[in-house]
Simulated scan of single mutants.
Amino acid sequence: MTFGEQPAYLRVAGDLRKKIADGLLPPHTRLPSQARIREEYGVSDTVALEARKVLMAEGLVEGRSGSGTYVRERPVPRRVARSGYRPAGGATPFRQEQADGDARGTWESRSEQAEASGAVAERLGIKPGDRVMCTRYVFREAGEAVMLSTSWEPLDLTGRTPVMLPEEGPLGGMGVVERMAAVAAQLDDDGEMQAWTFASNPARLPDLRLGDLPEWLRLHVRVGEISLFRRGRKKGLHPEQVDMRAVGIQNEEQKVIAEVRAFVRANPAPVPTLVLFFSDGGVYRNAEIERELREAVEEPVFWQFVGLGRSNYGVLERFDTLPGRRVDNVGFFAVDDIGTVPDPELYDRLLSEFPSWVTAAGRAGIL
């Protein structure tokens, strides 16, 4: 057998790997001995040994003391079905899946401060050498490593917030909604963030203060909680909690847009306003939404819409190309599963259009 320019041990390993994948060497079968590999492939003992080491490093074979080297059993793929439902208290999708009694997954993480490399700085929109929090993850299934992941988060954004350490503190391991609330509160000029929930009707939630974040999330992030047919105020609600029956079930985005616009006009601020608007689709009041956002062009507000899942977002998806506005005051992007988007990437997408709007609005005399 000729091997060409590739190192001989890699070619031997590649051939054995193919036999394992094709089932010619099924699980629990003993791998050919070192002498057999040497004879069959016409290589030295050193090459045969190195080829076996490659397969071991890839997790395809395992050594058994006093017996030899055997093909390992390949794990059966497990289908994962995710839904938009978020349990009270929040969690990342991986944590939700592992709550299943049949799941055998675990993970490890380690966070440390570091300086952003050129590539990381470009991705995060910061300068090389800026301080970032680097978190390295190892995800395991039945004790075996199945995935590695590394995240970098700019400390100018997350530093001194409850999410500075992604897997520690009061929001350790929480989902993106919870962590984004913390970052939004940090970005706000006075340390408070105004928040609304909506469906048929908008309802303003209590202002979010950074120090109150865990309790605020417990009280007010109540995805999927609704009871339409009870009379009177729902029992057991905290005095500050919204009765979700008053909010309803269908989407009326134009109503909450109008209410936010009225709030901004009644509470002028010395800095521009960024609105983060999360939608699960089902947009059908296209004409009313377009009218509200066209009128809002002359206001010091940028509207960043985020679609959650594959759905119908109507006019929101078309706003970037709609003519007749002095500045583009609307951004939009959609993600299939926001819980799988790394936080640095999500922050980058949330803020990607805001700076250019600030520049354009300043030139137009809006700011």
Rank of each mutant, 00 (worst) to 15 (best):
A119K: 15
P154S: 11
R95G: 09
A57L: 11
R82M: 15
A103C: 13
G125Q: 07
V120Q: 08
G105E: 03
W152M: 05
P128H: 12
A119C: 07
F139I: 02
S117C: 10
A57M: 09
A81R: 08
V71T: 03
Q113Y: 12
T92K: 09
E112N: 08
S83T: 15
A91H: 01
E112S: 11
E108V: 02
W107A: 05
E144G: 08
Q113C: 06
R64C: 02
G118Y: 14
S151H: 08
G59P: 01
E73K: 14
P154C: 06
E115T: 13
A142C: 00
C134W: 00
D100A: 11
R95K: 11
T92S: 14
P75K: 13
R86N: 10
S65W: 14
G118L: 14
S117R: 12
W152Y: 15
A88N: 08
R123V: 05
A142N: 13
G129Y: 13
G143C: 08
A103P: 03
E141Q: 13
F139R: 07
G66H: 14
G66E: 06
S83D: 12
R86W: 07
G66F: 09
G118H: 14
P128Y: 13
L155P: 00
A91V: 10
T106F: 10
G143F: 04
S65G: 08
Y85G: 07
Y137A: 03
S109K: 04
W152N: 05
V138M: 03
D102N: 05
G66M: 09
S151G: 09
G125D: 09
Q113D: 09
A81P: 02
